[in-house]
């Protein structure tokens, strides 16, 4: 498990670093929200999930999509807007999805995934027989959104097997948690009678252990659970900040926040030789992904109106 957790943390880190390069080169248009620094959460939570479980993700969603099992090569092509991408290039960074792997999409609306995951998990419950769960990832900014609180109420009322995972990186874009969250984040879960815990979100093994316990309780039919993972965003809210050079975090905090690095924490548990071979394999994979993404064709503009509707307008 230690090797596979490290592999995923490292893959997400390097994938995101490659993405930042592709933003700079103009291959990814419009920029991304880098997940760098928060990789242990996606890796740890998704390691506790099965293939047939479901996740919903956020605007900072690449890590979740990769950790739940999407093909990194087609994911990178998606971010580059190419027809070979997961969604034929029409989802992009903020709406990448792979429904065949239970990845119900990144989402540009903060908190929106909470209700969708609750509905999907409710469908599991209604369909009966199985023990599948859904996980909704969101940030600390989402805990002030009404729809998330509505979804938590419904999930608790109906004992829906959904895990709410709050990635508390301290900032909703530029606003600190202390400026935006009255009470506490876990206090919201308590209000609905949802069991919650706060864990170190920089250590994938800790996240995995906490997520496994929460997922198992949901699988047993004990209803929703809530996990707050404390983390730090190493990079910008959005790559636009690289150009705009906005400063809203104290310089000393930006240094201290990076001292505990999820890659080093997970990697430090491995034999150096093993770690090196994992790193090499990841670089080879990403080399292939970049080559594939940059050489794949862009969508044909004549298809811009396709897929507006699922059924014919008139027979």
């Amino acid at each position: 498990m230690e090797a596979s957790l490290y592999r995923m943390v490292r893959l997400i880190r390097r994938f995101e670093e490659r993405c930042v390069e592709l933003v700079r080169s103009g291959d990814i248009i419009g920029g991304i929200h880098p997940y760098i620094g928060q990789e242990a959460i996606a890796a740890g939570v998704c390691a506790a999930l099965r293939f047939d479980d479901i996740i919903t993700s956020t605007h900072r969603g690449h890590g979740h999509v990769l950790a739940k099992g999407a093909d990194p090569i087609r994911m990178l092509a998606e971010l580059c807007g190419k027809v070979t991408g997961l969604n034929r290039g029409r989802g992009g960074s903020m709406h990448a999805a792979d429904f065949s792997k239970g990845i119900f999409g990144a989402n540009g609306i903060v908190g929106a995934g909470g209700a969708i995951a609750t509905g999907a998990a409710w469908a599991f419950l209604r369909q009966g027989g199985g023990d599948k769960v859904a996980v909704s990832f969101f940030g600390d900014g989402a805990v002030s959104q009404g729809v998330l609180l509505e979804a938590m109420n419904l999930a608790a009322l109906w004992k829906v097997p959904v895990l709410f995972v709050c990635e508390n990186n301290g900032y909703a874009t530029t606003l600190t948690v202390s400026e935006s969250v009255a009470g506490t984040i876990c206090g919201r879960a308590s209000a609905f009678g949802i069991p919650s815990s706060t864990v170190d979100g920089m250590d994938a093994a800790v996240v995995f252990e906490a997520a496994s316990a929460a997922v198992e309780s949901a699988r047993r039919g004990e209803g929703p659970a809530f996990l707050e993972c404390l983390t730090y965003r190493f990079d910008a809210h959005h790559t636009w900040e690289h150009k705009a050079r906005v400063r809203y975090r104290p310089a000393e905090e930006e240094v201290s926040g990076r001292l505990r690095d999820p890659v080093e924490i997970a990697g430090g548990r491995l034999d150096p030789a093993e770690r090196e071979s994992i790193d090499e394999a990841i670089e080879a994979l990403l080399d292939e992904a970049v080559a594939f993404a940059t050489t794949s064709p862009a969508p044909d503009p004549s298809t811009a109106l396709d897929y507006l509707y699922g059924s014919a307008v008139l027979p």
């Binding site: 119900f104 209700a115 969708i116 995951a117 369909q127 729809v147 509505e150 109420n153």
Partner: peptide, 25 residues
């Protein structure tokens, strides 16, 4: 189970219905 009285939460109801629809309902 098929005719469900929901809380007063239109955003949550419609959002949850999306998840149900994605799962075949």
């Amino acid at each position: 189970e098929r005719v469900i009285d929901t809380p007063l939460a239109e955003s949550g109801i419609v959002g949850t219905a999306i998840g149900l629809a994605l799962r075949g309902y």
